[in-house]
Nucleic acid binder design. Structure first.
Lengths: 241, 241
DNA sequence: TTTCATTTACTTGTCAAACAAGATGATTCA
DNA sequence: TGAATCATCTTGTTTGACAAGTAAATGAAA
Protein backbone atom coordinates (compact mmCIF):
# COMPACT_ATOMS: atom_id res chain seq x y z
CA UNK A 1 0.00 0.00 0.00
CA UNK A 2 1.02 3.53 -0.65
CA UNK A 3 1.76 5.44 2.55
CA UNK A 4 2.73 8.96 1.53
CA UNK A 5 3.70 9.84 5.10
CA UNK A 6 2.72 13.48 5.06
CA UNK A 7 5.90 15.50 5.06
CA UNK A 8 6.54 18.05 7.76
CA UNK A 9 6.24 20.78 5.15
CA UNK A 10 2.74 19.64 4.27
CA UNK A 11 1.84 19.49 7.94
CA UNK A 12 3.26 22.96 8.38
CA UNK A 13 1.25 24.30 5.50
CA UNK A 14 -2.04 23.26 7.02
CA UNK A 15 -0.81 24.24 10.46
CA UNK A 16 -0.25 27.76 9.25
CA UNK A 17 -3.67 27.84 7.62
CA UNK A 18 -5.19 26.71 10.92
CA UNK A 19 -3.25 29.39 12.73
CA UNK A 20 -4.58 32.03 10.34
CA UNK A 21 -8.08 30.87 11.18
CA UNK A 22 -7.41 30.75 14.90
CA UNK A 23 -5.94 34.24 14.97
CA UNK A 24 -8.86 35.34 12.82
CA UNK A 25 -6.55 37.05 10.36
CA UNK A 26 -7.96 38.45 7.17
CA UNK A 27 -6.88 40.33 4.10
CA UNK A 28 -3.86 42.55 4.65
CA UNK A 29 -3.15 41.43 8.21
CA UNK A 30 0.39 40.60 9.16
CA UNK A 31 1.44 37.05 9.90
CA UNK A 32 3.79 36.21 12.76
CA UNK A 33 7.46 36.43 11.77
CA UNK A 34 9.49 33.47 10.59
CA UNK A 35 11.18 33.36 13.97
CA UNK A 36 7.89 33.21 15.87
CA UNK A 37 6.43 30.63 13.50
CA UNK A 38 9.48 28.38 13.59
CA UNK A 39 9.41 28.45 17.39
CA UNK A 40 5.68 27.84 17.55
CA UNK A 41 5.81 24.85 15.18
CA UNK A 42 9.21 23.66 16.40
CA UNK A 43 10.84 23.56 12.98
CA UNK A 44 13.84 25.26 11.48
CA UNK A 45 13.55 28.39 9.39
CA UNK A 46 14.52 26.71 6.09
CA UNK A 47 11.82 24.10 6.57
CA UNK A 48 9.29 26.74 7.55
CA UNK A 49 10.21 28.77 4.50
CA UNK A 50 9.41 25.84 2.20
CA UNK A 51 5.89 25.78 3.62
CA UNK A 52 5.50 29.55 3.39
CA UNK A 53 6.67 29.40 -0.21
CA UNK A 54 3.80 27.07 -1.02
CA UNK A 55 1.28 29.46 0.49
CA UNK A 56 2.89 32.28 -1.45
CA UNK A 57 2.43 30.35 -4.66
CA UNK A 58 -1.21 29.76 -3.78
CA UNK A 59 -1.57 33.52 -3.35
CA UNK A 60 -2.57 33.04 0.26
CA UNK A 61 0.21 35.30 1.51
CA UNK A 62 2.24 38.19 0.15
CA UNK A 63 5.81 38.72 1.24
CA UNK A 64 7.88 41.89 1.48
CA UNK A 65 11.50 41.69 2.50
CA UNK A 66 12.12 43.68 5.63
CA UNK A 67 8.41 44.12 6.38
CA UNK A 68 6.91 40.71 6.80
CA UNK A 69 4.25 38.43 5.39
CA UNK A 70 0.67 39.52 4.86
CA UNK A 71 -2.57 37.76 4.04
CA UNK A 72 -3.36 38.02 0.32
CA UNK A 73 -6.30 37.41 -1.97
CA UNK A 74 -6.08 33.63 -2.01
CA UNK A 75 -6.71 33.43 1.72
CA UNK A 76 -10.33 34.35 1.06
CA UNK A 77 -11.08 31.11 -0.76
CA UNK A 78 -8.19 28.86 0.09
CA UNK A 79 -10.63 26.08 0.83
CA UNK A 80 -13.62 26.50 -1.45
CA UNK A 81 -13.82 23.72 -4.04
CA UNK A 82 -10.58 24.43 -5.87
CA UNK A 83 -10.70 23.02 -9.38
CA UNK A 84 -7.09 21.93 -9.03
CA UNK A 85 -7.79 19.45 -6.25
CA UNK A 86 -7.79 15.91 -7.57
CA UNK A 87 -10.84 13.97 -6.45
CA UNK A 88 -13.22 11.44 -7.86
CA UNK A 89 -16.48 12.56 -9.37
CA UNK A 90 -18.30 10.99 -6.44
CA UNK A 91 -16.29 13.03 -3.95
CA UNK A 92 -16.73 16.17 -6.02
CA UNK A 93 -20.47 15.73 -6.24
CA UNK A 94 -20.63 15.18 -2.49
CA UNK A 95 -18.54 18.28 -1.78
CA UNK A 96 -21.08 20.28 -3.76
CA UNK A 97 -23.70 19.13 -1.32
CA UNK A 98 -25.50 16.49 -3.33
CA UNK A 99 -26.17 12.95 -2.16
CA UNK A 100 -26.04 11.37 -5.56
CA UNK A 101 -26.54 7.90 -6.97
CA UNK A 102 -24.76 6.35 -9.91
CA UNK A 103 -26.63 4.77 -12.79
CA UNK A 104 -24.61 2.53 -15.05
CA UNK A 105 -25.73 3.32 -18.58
CA UNK A 106 -23.49 0.77 -20.21
CA UNK A 107 -20.01 -0.65 -20.62
CA UNK A 108 -18.12 -2.51 -23.32
CA UNK A 109 -14.68 -3.60 -24.43
CA UNK A 110 -13.73 -1.59 -27.49
CA UNK A 111 -10.62 -1.07 -29.61
CA UNK A 112 -8.79 2.18 -28.89
CA UNK A 113 -9.37 4.76 -31.59
CA UNK A 114 -6.21 6.73 -32.45
CA UNK A 115 -7.27 9.82 -30.52
CA UNK A 116 -7.94 8.09 -27.23
CA UNK A 117 -5.01 5.72 -27.70
CA UNK A 118 -2.69 8.72 -27.82
CA UNK A 119 -4.20 10.19 -24.68
CA UNK A 120 -3.78 6.94 -22.77
CA UNK A 121 -0.44 6.23 -24.40
CA UNK A 122 -1.44 2.79 -25.60
CA UNK A 123 -1.25 1.31 -29.13
CA UNK A 124 -4.22 2.15 -31.38
CA UNK A 125 -6.61 -0.73 -31.49
CA UNK A 126 -5.61 -2.15 -28.13
CA UNK A 127 -8.53 -3.17 -25.95
CA UNK A 128 -10.10 -0.54 -23.72
CA UNK A 129 -13.03 -0.70 -21.39
CA UNK A 130 -15.54 2.06 -22.02
CA UNK A 131 -17.92 2.92 -19.19
CA UNK A 132 -20.87 5.24 -19.50
CA UNK A 133 -22.52 6.50 -16.33
CA UNK A 134 -24.83 9.10 -14.91
CA UNK A 135 -24.89 10.60 -11.41
CA UNK A 136 -28.21 11.90 -10.34
CA UNK A 137 -29.87 13.18 -7.22
CA UNK A 138 -33.61 13.20 -6.62
CA UNK A 139 -34.29 12.51 -10.26
CA UNK A 140 -32.09 15.42 -11.37
CA UNK A 141 -29.21 14.39 -13.63
CA UNK A 142 -25.98 15.96 -12.40
CA UNK A 143 -22.95 14.50 -14.17
CA UNK A 144 -22.76 12.42 -17.34
CA UNK A 145 -19.45 10.54 -17.48
CA UNK A 146 -17.56 8.62 -20.13
CA UNK A 147 -14.48 6.71 -18.97
CA UNK A 148 -11.94 4.70 -20.92
CA UNK A 149 -9.54 2.34 -19.14
CA UNK A 150 -6.89 -0.01 -20.58
CA UNK A 151 -8.28 -3.53 -20.36
CA UNK A 152 -4.77 -4.75 -19.52
CA UNK A 153 -5.18 -3.30 -16.03
CA UNK A 154 -7.59 -6.09 -15.18
CA UNK A 155 -5.87 -8.98 -16.92
CA UNK A 156 -4.25 -10.20 -13.72
CA UNK A 157 -7.60 -11.36 -12.42
CA UNK A 158 -9.71 -12.12 -15.50
CA UNK A 159 -12.24 -14.26 -13.69
CA UNK A 160 -14.06 -11.57 -11.76
CA UNK A 161 -16.04 -8.80 -13.40
CA UNK A 162 -15.45 -5.37 -11.86
CA UNK A 163 -18.45 -3.53 -10.54
CA UNK A 164 -18.70 -0.49 -12.80
CA UNK A 165 -21.50 1.11 -10.87
CA UNK A 166 -19.18 1.99 -8.01
CA UNK A 167 -16.20 4.30 -7.85
CA UNK A 168 -13.65 3.58 -10.55
CA UNK A 169 -11.03 5.39 -8.50
CA UNK A 170 -11.66 3.02 -5.61
CA UNK A 171 -11.67 0.06 -7.97
CA UNK A 172 -8.24 0.97 -9.30
CA UNK A 173 -6.94 1.67 -5.83
CA UNK A 174 -7.89 -1.92 -5.00
CA UNK A 175 -5.45 -3.22 -7.61
CA UNK A 176 -2.68 -0.82 -6.61
CA UNK A 177 -3.34 1.49 -9.53
CA UNK A 178 -5.29 4.26 -7.83
CA UNK A 179 -5.00 7.54 -9.74
CA UNK A 180 -3.33 10.34 -7.81
CA UNK A 181 -3.23 13.19 -10.29
CA UNK A 182 -4.52 14.26 -13.65
CA UNK A 183 -3.96 16.68 -16.45
CA UNK A 184 -7.24 18.29 -17.29
CA UNK A 185 -8.95 20.60 -19.67
CA UNK A 186 -12.21 22.47 -19.15
CA UNK A 187 -14.66 24.01 -21.58
CA UNK A 188 -18.35 24.73 -21.97
CA UNK A 189 -20.45 22.67 -24.31
CA UNK A 190 -23.76 20.88 -24.65
CA UNK A 191 -24.32 17.19 -24.17
CA UNK A 192 -23.82 15.39 -27.50
CA UNK A 193 -27.14 15.17 -29.32
CA UNK A 194 -27.33 11.39 -29.32
CA UNK A 195 -26.61 11.21 -25.60
CA UNK A 196 -29.49 13.56 -24.88
CA UNK A 197 -31.94 11.63 -26.98
CA UNK A 198 -30.80 8.12 -26.04
CA UNK A 199 -30.90 8.73 -22.31
CA UNK A 200 -33.62 11.31 -22.04
CA UNK A 201 -31.41 14.14 -20.86
CA UNK A 202 -33.02 16.95 -22.79
CA UNK A 203 -33.25 19.35 -19.86
CA UNK A 204 -29.58 19.04 -18.98
CA UNK A 205 -28.68 22.42 -20.45
CA UNK A 206 -25.16 23.78 -20.85
CA UNK A 207 -22.44 21.59 -19.38
CA UNK A 208 -18.98 22.16 -17.98
CA UNK A 209 -16.92 19.49 -19.67
CA UNK A 210 -13.80 18.39 -17.84
CA UNK A 211 -11.61 16.10 -19.91
CA UNK A 212 -8.83 14.52 -17.96
CA UNK A 213 -6.08 11.95 -18.14
CA UNK A 214 -5.52 10.31 -14.75
CA UNK A 215 -2.16 8.99 -13.64
CA UNK A 216 -1.35 6.27 -11.14
CA UNK A 217 1.45 6.83 -8.67
CA UNK A 218 3.90 5.00 -10.94
CA UNK A 219 3.09 7.40 -13.77
CA UNK A 220 1.05 5.06 -15.94
CA UNK A 221 -2.13 6.49 -17.42
CA UNK A 222 -5.12 4.63 -16.09
CA UNK A 223 -8.23 6.60 -17.09
CA UNK A 224 -9.26 8.97 -19.81
CA UNK A 225 -12.44 10.65 -18.63
CA UNK A 226 -14.96 13.07 -20.06
CA UNK A 227 -17.21 14.42 -17.33
CA UNK A 228 -20.13 16.65 -18.30
CA UNK A 229 -21.09 18.66 -15.21
CA UNK A 230 -24.52 20.19 -15.34
CA UNK A 231 -23.91 23.93 -15.57
CA UNK A 232 -26.74 24.90 -13.28
CA UNK A 233 -25.45 22.65 -10.50
CA UNK A 234 -21.67 23.01 -10.41
CA UNK A 235 -19.05 25.69 -10.23
CA UNK A 236 -15.36 25.66 -9.36
CA UNK A 237 -13.14 28.27 -7.84
CA UNK A 238 -9.47 29.04 -8.12
CA UNK A 239 -6.92 31.80 -7.78
CA UNK A 240 -5.30 33.45 -10.79
CA UNK A 241 -2.00 35.13 -10.29
CA UNK B 1 6.39 51.95 -10.52
CA UNK B 2 6.20 48.42 -9.30
CA UNK B 3 9.47 46.56 -9.71
CA UNK B 4 8.88 43.07 -8.35
CA UNK B 5 12.57 42.20 -8.66
CA UNK B 6 12.18 38.56 -9.52
CA UNK B 7 13.45 36.58 -6.57
CA UNK B 8 16.19 34.05 -6.99
CA UNK B 9 13.71 31.31 -6.21
CA UNK B 10 11.50 32.41 -9.09
CA UNK B 11 14.52 32.56 -11.37
CA UNK B 12 15.50 29.10 -10.22
CA UNK B 13 12.05 27.74 -10.93
CA UNK B 14 12.15 28.77 -14.56
CA UNK B 15 15.80 27.79 -14.78
CA UNK B 16 14.92 24.28 -13.76
CA UNK B 17 12.07 24.16 -16.28
CA UNK B 18 14.49 25.30 -18.98
CA UNK B 19 16.94 22.62 -17.90
CA UNK B 20 14.22 19.99 -18.17
CA UNK B 21 13.59 21.13 -21.72
CA UNK B 22 17.28 21.25 -22.57
CA UNK B 23 17.93 17.78 -21.23
CA UNK B 24 14.81 16.65 -23.07
CA UNK B 25 13.45 14.94 -19.98
CA UNK B 26 9.97 13.53 -20.02
CA UNK B 27 7.58 11.67 -17.79
CA UNK B 28 9.29 9.45 -15.22
CA UNK B 29 12.83 10.59 -15.99
CA UNK B 30 15.10 11.44 -13.10
CA UNK B 31 16.18 14.98 -12.46
CA UNK B 32 19.74 15.84 -11.44
CA UNK B 33 20.28 15.63 -7.68
CA UNK B 34 20.00 18.59 -5.34
CA UNK B 35 23.77 18.69 -5.14
CA UNK B 36 24.21 18.85 -8.91
CA UNK B 37 21.46 21.43 -9.31
CA UNK B 38 22.74 23.69 -6.55
CA UNK B 39 26.19 23.60 -8.12
CA UNK B 40 24.87 24.21 -11.61
CA UNK B 41 22.77 27.18 -10.56
CA UNK B 42 25.23 28.39 -7.92
CA UNK B 43 22.74 28.51 -5.06
CA UNK B 44 22.54 26.81 -1.71
CA UNK B 45 20.50 23.69 -1.14
CA UNK B 46 17.86 25.41 1.06
CA UNK B 47 17.23 28.00 -1.67
CA UNK B 48 17.12 25.34 -4.34
CA UNK B 49 14.70 23.32 -2.27
CA UNK B 50 12.27 26.25 -2.11
CA UNK B 51 12.17 26.30 -5.91
CA UNK B 52 11.82 22.52 -6.16
CA UNK B 53 8.96 22.67 -3.67
CA UNK B 54 7.08 24.98 -6.00
CA UNK B 55 7.48 22.57 -8.91
CA UNK B 56 6.35 19.76 -6.65
CA UNK B 57 3.19 21.67 -5.82
CA UNK B 58 2.57 22.26 -9.52
CA UNK B 59 2.83 18.49 -10.00
CA UNK B 60 5.76 18.97 -12.35
CA UNK B 61 8.01 16.74 -10.27
CA UNK B 62 7.57 13.87 -7.85
CA UNK B 63 9.97 13.34 -5.01
CA UNK B 64 11.02 10.18 -3.19
CA UNK B 65 13.38 10.38 -0.27
CA UNK B 66 16.48 8.38 -0.94
CA UNK B 67 15.71 7.93 -4.65
CA UNK B 68 15.50 11.33 -6.20
CA UNK B 69 13.18 13.63 -8.09
CA UNK B 70 11.26 12.52 -11.16
CA UNK B 71 9.23 14.25 -13.82
CA UNK B 72 5.51 13.98 -13.09
CA UNK B 73 2.25 14.55 -14.90
CA UNK B 74 2.29 18.32 -14.70
CA UNK B 75 5.43 18.54 -16.78
CA UNK B 76 3.42 17.54 -19.82
CA UNK B 77 1.37 20.71 -19.84
CA UNK B 78 3.22 23.06 -17.55
CA UNK B 79 2.89 25.74 -20.18
CA UNK B 80 -0.39 25.23 -22.01
CA UNK B 81 -2.95 27.93 -21.19
CA UNK B 82 -3.21 27.29 -17.47
CA UNK B 83 -6.46 28.66 -16.12
CA UNK B 84 -4.65 29.82 -13.00
CA UNK B 85 -2.45 32.30 -14.83
CA UNK B 86 -3.72 35.83 -14.33
CA UNK B 87 -4.03 37.70 -17.60
CA UNK B 88 -6.37 40.17 -19.20
CA UNK B 89 -9.12 38.97 -21.49
CA UNK B 90 -7.24 40.52 -24.42
CA UNK B 91 -4.12 38.54 -23.60
CA UNK B 92 -6.13 35.39 -23.09
CA UNK B 93 -7.93 35.76 -26.40
CA UNK B 94 -4.60 36.33 -28.13
CA UNK B 95 -3.04 33.28 -26.49
CA UNK B 96 -5.86 31.19 -27.94
CA UNK B 97 -4.77 32.32 -31.38
CA UNK B 98 -7.43 34.91 -32.17
CA UNK B 99 -6.71 38.43 -33.34
CA UNK B 100 -9.78 40.00 -31.81
CA UNK B 101 -11.31 43.43 -31.72
CA UNK B 102 -13.22 44.99 -28.88
CA UNK B 103 -16.65 46.51 -29.37
CA UNK B 104 -17.90 48.78 -26.62
CA UNK B 105 -21.54 47.92 -26.10
CA UNK B 106 -22.11 50.52 -23.41
CA UNK B 107 -20.99 52.01 -20.13
CA UNK B 108 -22.64 53.88 -17.30
CA UNK B 109 -22.21 55.05 -13.75
CA UNK B 110 -24.55 53.04 -11.55
CA UNK B 111 -25.16 52.56 -7.82
CA UNK B 112 -23.69 49.35 -6.42
CA UNK B 113 -26.32 46.74 -5.74
CA UNK B 114 -25.73 44.82 -2.50
CA UNK B 115 -24.39 41.73 -4.22
CA UNK B 116 -21.73 43.48 -6.26
CA UNK B 117 -20.94 45.91 -3.45
CA UNK B 118 -20.02 42.96 -1.25
CA UNK B 119 -17.80 41.49 -3.92
CA UNK B 120 -15.94 44.75 -4.41
CA UNK B 121 -16.00 45.52 -0.70
CA UNK B 122 -17.57 48.96 -1.17
CA UNK B 123 -20.71 50.39 0.49
CA UNK B 124 -23.98 49.46 -1.24
CA UNK B 125 -25.14 52.29 -3.41
CA UNK B 126 -21.68 53.76 -3.95
CA UNK B 127 -20.97 54.73 -7.54
CA UNK B 128 -19.58 52.09 -9.84
CA UNK B 129 -18.73 52.20 -13.49
CA UNK B 130 -20.32 49.39 -15.46
CA UNK B 131 -18.76 48.49 -18.78
CA UNK B 132 -20.27 46.10 -21.28
CA UNK B 133 -18.09 44.85 -24.11
CA UNK B 134 -17.75 42.19 -26.76
CA UNK B 135 -14.57 40.74 -28.28
CA UNK B 136 -15.00 39.37 -31.73
CA UNK B 137 -12.87 38.09 -34.54
CA UNK B 138 -13.92 37.99 -38.19
CA UNK B 139 -17.51 38.65 -37.26
CA UNK B 140 -17.54 35.78 -34.75
CA UNK B 141 -18.36 36.85 -31.19
CA UNK B 142 -15.84 35.34 -28.76
CA UNK B 143 -16.19 36.85 -25.30
CA UNK B 144 -19.01 38.91 -23.80
CA UNK B 145 -17.77 40.86 -20.77
CA UNK B 146 -19.38 42.79 -17.96
CA UNK B 147 -17.05 44.78 -15.72
CA UNK B 148 -17.76 46.84 -12.63
CA UNK B 149 -15.15 49.27 -11.24
CA UNK B 150 -15.38 51.64 -8.27
CA UNK B 151 -15.83 55.12 -9.69
CA UNK B 152 -13.59 56.43 -6.89
CA UNK B 153 -10.60 55.01 -8.71
CA UNK B 154 -10.89 57.74 -11.31
CA UNK B 155 -11.77 60.66 -9.06
CA UNK B 156 -8.21 61.94 -8.97
CA UNK B 157 -8.46 63.04 -12.59
CA UNK B 158 -12.15 63.74 -13.21
CA UNK B 159 -11.59 65.83 -16.30
CA UNK B 160 -10.59 63.11 -18.73
CA UNK B 161 -12.88 60.30 -19.77
CA UNK B 162 -11.21 56.88 -19.81
CA UNK B 163 -11.27 54.98 -23.07
CA UNK B 164 -13.35 51.93 -22.26
CA UNK B 165 -12.79 50.28 -25.61
CA UNK B 166 -9.18 49.50 -24.70
CA UNK B 167 -7.74 47.26 -22.03
CA UNK B 168 -9.10 48.00 -18.58
CA UNK B 169 -6.12 46.26 -17.05
CA UNK B 170 -3.80 48.63 -18.89
CA UNK B 171 -6.00 51.57 -17.94
CA UNK B 172 -5.72 50.73 -14.25
CA UNK B 173 -2.02 50.10 -14.54
CA UNK B 174 -1.75 53.67 -15.82
CA UNK B 175 -3.09 55.00 -12.52
CA UNK B 176 -0.96 52.65 -10.41
CA UNK B 177 -3.85 50.30 -9.72
CA UNK B 178 -3.09 47.53 -12.17
CA UNK B 179 -4.63 44.24 -11.03
CA UNK B 180 -2.14 41.49 -10.27
CA UNK B 181 -4.32 38.62 -9.07
CA UNK B 182 -7.89 37.51 -8.83
CA UNK B 183 -10.16 35.05 -7.10
CA UNK B 184 -12.26 33.38 -9.70
CA UNK B 185 -15.12 30.99 -10.21
CA UNK B 186 -16.00 29.06 -13.34
CA UNK B 187 -19.19 27.44 -14.51
CA UNK B 188 -21.10 26.64 -17.67
CA UNK B 189 -24.15 28.64 -18.61
CA UNK B 190 -25.89 30.35 -21.48
CA UNK B 191 -25.78 34.04 -22.23
CA UNK B 192 -28.60 35.81 -20.39
CA UNK B 193 -31.64 35.94 -22.62
CA UNK B 194 -31.81 39.72 -22.85
CA UNK B 195 -28.14 39.95 -23.77
CA UNK B 196 -28.66 37.54 -26.65
CA UNK B 197 -31.63 39.40 -28.01
CA UNK B 198 -30.37 42.94 -27.43
CA UNK B 199 -27.02 42.37 -29.09
CA UNK B 200 -27.89 39.74 -31.63
CA UNK B 201 -25.83 36.96 -30.08
CA UNK B 202 -28.22 34.10 -30.70
CA UNK B 203 -25.64 31.74 -32.14
CA UNK B 204 -23.27 32.14 -29.19
CA UNK B 205 -24.16 28.75 -27.69
CA UNK B 206 -22.99 27.46 -24.31
CA UNK B 207 -20.56 29.74 -22.51
CA UNK B 208 -17.81 29.25 -19.98
CA UNK B 209 -18.51 31.94 -17.43
CA UNK B 210 -15.55 33.13 -15.41
CA UNK B 211 -16.52 35.46 -12.58
CA UNK B 212 -13.60 37.10 -10.90
CA UNK B 213 -12.64 39.74 -8.39
CA UNK B 214 -9.37 41.43 -9.35
CA UNK B 215 -6.97 42.82 -6.78
CA UNK B 216 -4.39 45.57 -7.15
CA UNK B 217 -0.96 45.09 -5.66
CA UNK B 218 -2.03 46.96 -2.50
CA UNK B 219 -4.88 44.50 -2.01
CA UNK B 220 -7.75 46.80 -2.98
CA UNK B 221 -10.40 45.29 -5.20
CA UNK B 222 -10.49 47.09 -8.50
CA UNK B 223 -12.69 45.03 -10.85
CA UNK B 224 -15.55 42.62 -10.60
CA UNK B 225 -15.81 40.89 -13.95
CA UNK B 226 -18.13 38.40 -15.59
CA UNK B 227 -16.61 37.03 -18.76
CA UNK B 228 -18.68 34.72 -20.95
CA UNK B 229 -16.26 32.73 -23.11
CA UNK B 230 -17.81 31.12 -26.14
CA UNK B 231 -17.69 27.41 -25.44
CA UNK B 232 -16.80 26.39 -28.96
CA UNK B 233 -13.78 28.69 -28.99
CA UNK B 234 -12.08 28.42 -25.61
CA UNK B 235 -10.73 25.80 -23.28
CA UNK B 236 -8.40 25.93 -20.32
CA UNK B 237 -6.02 23.39 -18.92
CA UNK B 238 -4.72 22.68 -15.45
CA UNK B 239 -3.29 19.98 -13.24
CA UNK B 240 -5.29 18.30 -10.50
CA UNK B 241 -3.46 16.68 -7.69
C1' DT C 1 10.19 73.50 17.45
C1' DT C 2 10.89 71.51 13.14
C1' DT C 3 13.49 68.99 9.83
C1' DC C 4 16.52 65.79 8.12
C1' DA C 5 20.25 62.45 8.40
C1' DT C 6 21.90 58.58 11.20
C1' DT C 7 21.58 54.81 13.89
C1' DT C 8 19.44 50.78 15.59
C1' DA C 9 16.46 46.96 15.70
C1' DC C 10 13.64 43.92 13.19
C1' DT C 11 12.27 41.20 9.11
C1' DT C 12 13.06 38.41 5.12
C1' DG C 13 16.85 36.44 1.84
C1' DT C 14 20.71 33.41 1.39
C1' DC C 15 24.40 30.49 2.59
C1' DA C 16 27.52 26.66 4.59
C1' DA C 17 28.17 22.56 7.06
C1' DA C 18 26.48 18.84 9.37
C1' DC C 19 23.65 14.90 10.55
C1' DA C 20 19.20 11.97 9.99
C1' DA C 21 16.57 8.83 7.20
C1' DG C 22 15.26 6.20 3.18
C1' DA C 23 16.97 3.46 -0.97
C1' DT C 24 20.24 0.80 -3.55
C1' DG C 25 23.72 -2.14 -4.78
C1' DA C 26 28.06 -4.52 -3.49
C1' DT C 27 30.33 -7.28 -0.21
C1' DT C 28 30.76 -10.69 3.03
C1' DC C 29 29.70 -14.68 5.42
C1' DA C 30 27.09 -18.85 6.43
C1' DT D 1 23.29 -20.05 -3.33
C1' DG D 2 21.19 -17.05 -0.19
C1' DA D 3 20.85 -13.76 3.33
C1' DA D 4 22.59 -10.31 6.27
C1' DT D 5 25.59 -6.31 6.45
C1' DC D 6 27.77 -2.32 4.95
C1' DA D 7 29.02 1.64 2.07
C1' DT D 8 27.11 5.08 -0.53
C1' DC D 9 23.87 7.99 -2.68
C1' DT D 10 19.67 10.49 -2.28
C1' DT D 11 16.39 13.62 0.06
C1' DG D 12 14.89 15.61 4.88
C1' DT D 13 16.04 18.74 8.59
C1' DT D 14 18.67 21.58 11.73
C1' DT D 15 21.88 25.16 13.38
C1' DG D 16 24.15 29.38 13.09
C1' DA D 17 25.63 33.04 10.57
C1' DC D 18 25.54 37.08 7.55
C1' DA D 19 23.29 40.10 3.76
C1' DA D 20 19.67 43.21 2.46
C1' DG D 21 15.47 45.76 2.91
C1' DT D 22 12.28 48.39 6.21
C1' DA D 23 10.78 51.26 9.86
C1' DA D 24 11.07 53.60 13.98
C1' DA D 25 13.90 55.91 17.43
C1' DT D 26 17.58 59.15 17.96
C1' DG D 27 19.98 63.24 17.69
C1' DA D 28 22.06 67.20 15.40
C1' DA D 29 21.23 71.25 12.62
C1' DA D 30 18.14 74.87 10.95
Amino acid sequence: MEKPKESSVERLRSGILDLIRDLDLSFGDKLPTEKELSERFQVSRPTLREALKLLEQEAVIDVHQGKGRFLAAGALLSIARPITKFESVSQMVASHGYSAQTRLLGFATVPADPDIAARLSVPPGSPLIRVERLRHSNGQPLVYSLDWLPKALFDADPATTPDWSGSIVALLAGIERGPVASTANVRATLLPQEVSTLHGLDGFGPALLIEEICYASDGTRVIYAMDYHRGSAFSFSFVRK
